[in-house]
Design a protein around this nucleic acid. Structure first.
Lengths: 189, 189
DNA sequence: GACGCTTGTCAACAGGCGTTGACAAAGCCA
DNA sequence: TGGCTTTGTCAACGCCTGTTGACAAGCGTC
């Protein structure tokens, strides 16, 4: 919603507006495909202002990634219920993935040479690490990796298939019931 | 291995050399990060020649993707053995993934706006489709998607973790034995 | 040898990128 | 009112990209 006329002078509001726009953009397109001018247009501001507020594009990308929090939303709730919950919410209702926006950003840009290092570091610190701690037990590291890989793989698979699985409800339930114990087994160790 | 002096005049050899170099590059870097001049330097040729032989960068990318064949290498061998074989080879010995170079190329560039459509089409036709036919049985479509997603997710997870799982042999075996029946269950329907 | 086709090189173009520094306008304070 | 800082805009820079057309050299054929 761009309003005509000059933008009101409010540095704090403008800064967070830029950050919000960047988060949305980077979750939808790769680091390389997102231009400073694109984000600026979303906010209704000149691209030069972004450089002034955030420094470089890298800094803005990191700030956007940071603003998504860690993966703790994924690990909230009952551990015993995890398999079923994740199988349902993440795999078959990706629209609820708002809480996983950070994962979307990482997945979008993991292929980009300019962003991959930032993505790797962030992923290790805020996703793999907490997940590993949460899982605990034997082989926690590799179980965390496999679990995270599964979630990301479903996301990629959905993307490659054209945006959704297009499942009928009955099919969805069958698949959920099949996947839930698999995931739960990885949780329980 | 670049030799000094002018390149011998051999159109066919030069063409396949370009195609080979492109395949390697696109398997290691994203569409956006691979430049025509990079590939040209690998071959020891001028970038303009690539345009002449293959048309546009898109055409070269598609040719590289095409030259990888379909996923039939993945689906060769005994079906009853699939779970254990894949769990071992793909998940824990990624160096053997030569036969899955096409998958690497797709994964690298799925995030790029310029390449995503080409990747999606190729993936559906040469990976999801054959896999679905091979699996057959009830819910074949979604089983194929989940299975493919799992394989890709392991690849992404390895990438994000810094290139390898760094597992000890014993750990590797435990994980293989745990994953094999999961994969096999998706195969058998 | 001279022609003509093929194979490869070179320089340049147009377009896009992130970033910078100069400038304008708004608001605050004396 | 006159200055000063903050907030935002604008034009431009240097760099890199894919692609093009002109040019050079190799090679077979007459």
């Amino acid at each position: 919603m761009l309003c005509p006329g000059p933008r009101p002078r409010n540095a704090a509001a403008t800064r967070t507006a830029i950050l919000d726009a960047a988060r949305e953009r980077f979750a939808a397109e790769s680091y390389d495909d997102v231009g400073m001018r694109d984000i600026a247009r979303d906010v209704g501001v000149d691209a030069a202002l972004i450089s002034r507020y955030f420094g470089s594009k890298d800094d803005l990308f990191l700030a956007a990634l940071d603003s998504c929090g860690d993966g703790s939303a994924l690990m909230s709730g009952e551990k015993a219920d995890f398999g079923r919950r994740v199988a349902h919410e993440i795999v078959f209702e990706p629209k609820k993935a708002e809480k996983l926006k950070g994962m979307s950003i990482m997945l979008r840009s993991i292929g980009s040479a300019k962003a991959s290092e930032m993505v790797q570091n962030t992923c290790t610190q805020r996703f793999f690490g907490p997940l590993e701690d949460w899982l605990a037990g034997p082989d926690a590291t590799v179980r965390a990796r496999v679990l995270a890989g599964f979630l990301m793989g479903m996301s990629v698979s959905r993307e490659l298939g054209g945006g959704s699985f297009d499942l009928e409800p009955a099919e969805c339930e069958r698949m959920r019931d099949r996947l839930a114990p698999i995931l739960q087994d990885l949780i329980d160790g």
